[in-house]
Nucleic acid binder design. Structure first.
Lengths: 154, 154
DNA sequence: TGACAATAATAGCCTTGACAATGATAGCCT
DNA sequence: AGGCTATCATTGTCAAGGCTATTATTGTCA
């Protein structure tokens, strides 16, 4: 007996979970980029979907340093430095060297960042709900659980 | 009553389907890149996860021109031109102007490409099966169906 | 104390995808 | 045939992530 999901006979790359997920992710990010760019209050920040994820992590108190952000959202450290550059130059976040461990750079939202977050959150939520149109609550929870299980398998 | 999945009270960006899917996708692509790079037969081609998807589409007869590839896998046309450049320079595929419609460029696998494909397919399948460890067949089919429904909603 | 490994942020280089503009071709319509 | 529009591939440009040093700092251990 086998516990494998795909086997050599039935596996069709283009219909597989891997490829499908790639397409859905790309579509969702593009949709969120568009949404954030179209919003009257947010357009001036030109914030992208990826940037929103960082801001959200800070706003929800899930991270307060660059390295924590990297771990929390699975993001490259070098890319994070520049991501922080961008958000800082937009006035949405602020850097501050940690006093205890001077290797660390603490990151916090600025007043402007805190103000803008709820609107961004609203946009992101709207996009997700659009993509999940026709899903029951149960199905959505199940999808979340599937994704979490895949993450744990990695 | 509401048909919305997420609402302002319960929506947590980092736990949402959007962010989770982004992380899973990134992890899967990285894993497949590593797998393809480690395989003795395939390493010399230095083929990436994204490139595999193109080769697979050709091998499965799901596309035979650049534009069909773009549509089939939701890929930018400009990016596809250069993707084809790369694969062609590796000797895995071949370009040929279509005789009937000279706007079209037909793409076909070379002998080398056809030979290499089964091994790539094997790698990709292995990665997917690893990420889907612990899933029942039903759950996997359900996940595929969820993703397809999201694509249709976009 | 000093050598050495581990961690954090950063900078440089390279790859690659997205977007817009361009040129060639095809289909349609009159 | 001529004009209009759509489609296809290509190119240039730009933005962003991945990888690999590099530097500063911390912790460990002899």
């Amino acid at each position: 007996m086998s516990t494998e999901i795909y086997d050599a006979n039935t596996y069709e790359p283009r219909k597989s979970v891997g490829h499908l997920m790639n397409r859905v992710r790309t579509a969702m990010f593009a949709a969120l980029d568009a949404e954030l760019g179209a919003d009257t209050d947010l357009a001036r920040f030109e914030v992208s979907a990826a940037q929103f994820v960082v801001i959200a992590s800070l706003a929800m108190g899930e991270a307060d340093s660059a390295s924590q952000l990297c771990k929390g959202i699975s993001y490259d450290a070098g890319a994070m430095t520049r991501m922080i550059d961008r958000l800082e130059s937009k006035g949405l976040i602020r850097r501050r060297r940690d006093a205890d461990d001077r290797r660390l750079v603490n990151i916090e939202l600025t007043e402007q960042g805190r103000e803008a977050f709820p609107k961004m959150r609203q946009c992101a939520m709207g996009v997700l709900n659009r993509f999940l149109r026709g899903f029951t609550q149960n199905e959505a929870r199940q999808l979340e659980s599937f994704l979490n299980r895949m993450l744990e398998n990695s």
